[in-house]
């Protein structure tokens, strides 16, 4: 079942990307949940899907596309006040998804990549470009370091923005840097499980970790660990799924999301 697992270049690439995405998303996710910005993460994922489609169309590394549009989305979000009109936000996101539809259509028809929609929206770890693993790992490390630098003012401004401002924290700067980090985490998660499933890696392990501990630092470590478990477990199960239905691999993303879901459910049970 696992013959050739450890020697496969493709598998190593998948493990690298999945692990990198899980570590950064877990840490960022804890703050996303604490700050009540789950919706922002979801919105960035939807917007970044257009970037994923664009990079397929242009034939560039999908990480660049996801991240580029994610940054644009972060810029749009930082201009909005919190919670003003989920109707307007939803309709604007719809326009963004329409753009994704158009770009995917071009990618499919002009570049003959029939799987474009599935790759961008639902991810495909096993078909990631070979260099993507190292790039993902590097950016995840950079993201974690940056998060470490801003974690004190970020935590303070998440808990009480007024208090943070009085203490001399530049709230707008902190919020802006955080949105960039969020875009990066969404990018890596989108690489791993696809744009519309990236919420799972971002929110799931973090929410599960916050069920188990209220200490932010510990929660970050725990979320990263749980995320890596889900990502690697998903890769292994997908690899093994050759044997489930002859000749057909089950999607890695399905296994990762299912593991995340079970992890969260188990964590919720413990408190109850």
């Amino acid at each position: 079942m696992f013959e050739g697992f450890w020697t496969s270049q493709v598998v190593w690439n998948a493990l690298l990307i999945g692990g990198a995405a899980a570590v950064l998303s877990g840490c960022i996710g804890v703050f996303t949940v604490l700050r009540g910005q789950s919706f922002a993460g979801h919105a960035l994922a939807d917007v970044s899907s257009a970037g994923g489609a664009l990079s397929l169309l242009l034939g560039i590394n999908p990480m660049l596309g996801f991240f580029g549009l994610g940054l644009l989305g972060a810029l749009g979000l930082s201009g909005r006040r919190q919670g003003d009109g989920d109707l307007a936000a939803g309709i604007l996101l719809g326009a963004g998804l329409g753009l994704t539809a158009l770009l995917l259509h071009f990618a499919i028809s002009l570049r003959n990549s029939t799987g474009a929609a599935a790759v961008v929206m639902f991810g495909s770890l096993f078909s990631a470009p070979p260099g993507a693993g190292a790039l993902a790992l590097g950016s995840a490390l950079a993201g974690v370091v940056l998060l470490g630098v801003i974690h004190r003012p970020l935590l303070l401004s998440s808990l009480d923005a007024g208090l943070a401002a009085v203490r001399g924290v530049n709230i707008r700067l902190v919020a802006g840097v955080f949105l960039v980090l969020l875009a990066l985490a969404v990018t890596l998660s989108a690489m791993a499980v696809g744009a519309i499933l990236s919420t799972a890696l971002l929110i799931g392990p973090a929410a599960a970790a916050l069920r188990l501990t209220r200490r932010p630092g510990l929660a970050c470590a725990l979320a990263a660990g749980l995320g890596v478990f889900c990502a690697w477990g998903g890769v292994a199960l997908a690899y093994a799924s050759y044997g489930f239905t002859p000749g057909r691999v089950w999607p890695v993303s399905f296994f990762i999301v299912a593991l995340v879901f079970c992890t969260y459910a188990a964590a919720s049970l413990r408190r109850a």
Binding site: I196, G204, W250, P251, V257, V260, F261, Y264
Partner: peptide, 27 residues
């Protein structure tokens, strides 16, 4: 919110699984 979001994403992933098993994943 977290549980709701996860449930929705899990449903989408389940759909992806069904489609991939159907052999008509891409289109």
């Amino acid at each position: 919110d977290a549980a709701t979001a996860l449930a929705l994403v899990a449903l989408l992933a389940l759909g992806a699984l069904f489609l991939s098993l159907s052999g008509r994943y891409a289109d």
